[in-house]
Design a protein around this nucleic acid. Sequence first.
DNA 1: AGTATATTGTATATTTTTTATACAATAATT
DNA 2: AATTATTGTATAAAAAATATACAATATACT
Lengths: 241, 241
Amino acid sequence: MNNLSEQNYIQQISIDTVLFGYEEKQLKVLVPKLDFKGDFWALPSGFVYQGEDIEQAAERILRDRTGISNIYLEQFRVFGKASRNSMEFLDRLIELNPEKLGEKRHKQQEYDWFTQRFISIGYYALVDISKVVPQKNTLDESIEWYALHELPVMIMDHRQIVEAALQALRSDLDEKQNAFNLLPETFTMKEVQELYETIFDKPFVRTNFQKMILDLDVLERLEKKFTGAANKAPYLYKFKK
Amino acid sequence: MNNLSEQNYIQQISIDTVLFGYEEKQLKVLVPKLDFKGDFWALPSGFVYQGEDIEQAAERILRDRTGISNIYLEQFRVFGKASRNSMEFLDRLIELNPEKLGEKRHKQQEYDWFTQRFISIGYYALVDISKVVPQKNTLDESIEWYALHELPVMIMDHRQIVEAALQALRSDLDEKQNAFNLLPETFTMKEVQELYETIFDKPFVRTNFQKMILDLDVLERLEKKFTGAANKAPYLYKFKK
DNA sequence: AGTATATTGTATATTTTTTATACAATAATT
DNA sequence: AATTATTGTATAAAAAATATACAATATACT
């Protein structure tokens, strides 16, 4: 651990991010695994510098893990139960990693900082998964995309945070057209439909879906995409804006 | 000021509440005025105790100002700009109230606590305005309901917080039926319509509005209400649940 | 080259929902 | 008993959502 307790962070506030990507007809979430014994997976998280907007902090946390800026971000909820702290998780972490973390008392200051009760601001983010090269940070053993239905067991309430983020994403889709942020630069209508079917976990009727999306008037039609398949080639579209 | 800096509050986190009521066909907001020279109006605000859920904190803040519990509450957004602090406001407050607040340096600790950069969690709440007897707290000169269109100039970004709360209220109305929390125990359909027209600032067609509301299937029809007017008496309804 | 096949784009029919209009019921007043 | 202003409900018209039909087409297969 770095000397987090000495850095210029706001105390007791954390940012937890749920980064969604879309690949192989599945919604995926970027989840780092901690470089400690014991299989600990946690959402990309961080803290807010004194001179930093909370949105900047969320951007920074994601930029550090993805290498890309200008990620589509939405603040969706604050998790503020008094019982919300990492004491249980940290005790187990230390118990399983005595050689690395040493005796509690030798790291008391650091330990105390971490076991404070934290109020966490939840952000979800959407990316074109092909643009991201996941970046381990110093605490990570790995960082990988996990399909939503195959998420590993996560620490604390991180699983519930993912669930709340998914609900927010679905709900936002009614007014915002943010789903297109999950797709590559260009895509076919079929790909859009598969994405929507994945997000809402229900089928759409092809012809009406096509009309509905085109009526949104947010797509620009490009050239055709010839795949070599023995059928009519679909048009490519891009999200205008 | 009490010794806020010595109390067991989480630092740099505040709760700002926008309490909506409905009276005389107007949406109103409960706004205390500070008991200092200089006309300072601020939203009912407060801090979070170490052992307290953020929602409990919001409830407590509103209970203290209204005397009632079980207020309908919704967390709607976090305001977290780095530039968000009360320094400007406090400087002016002290400047205008030297006899009461004394020299800055004599209250340095208190002053420092207040001028920290705060991240504020916004809650809006809905009440039956007739149930509330506004309670001044020790810092208030007055506390009054102000029509949304006649709000006094408020400190810091509190006016924008009200605006964001109103937007959230409107947006939530699509899925939740929380508007009924603004009405008294029983009400006529006309009163419901007037409330909706006030919230959305647009007219509804009476017959279709009535059907729409009844189709929600959240109202229970009671006896008629005889007002003495020379026309058919309307039914009273109550919000079931 | 001509036919077959799977998919795509669009048009149209059908159903449902929303909005507009009509009208009977009724609580006082005259 | 007729009059008036509202209320409750029914129905007509318009719009939106959903279902169905079909022509266009990129390639494979004969």
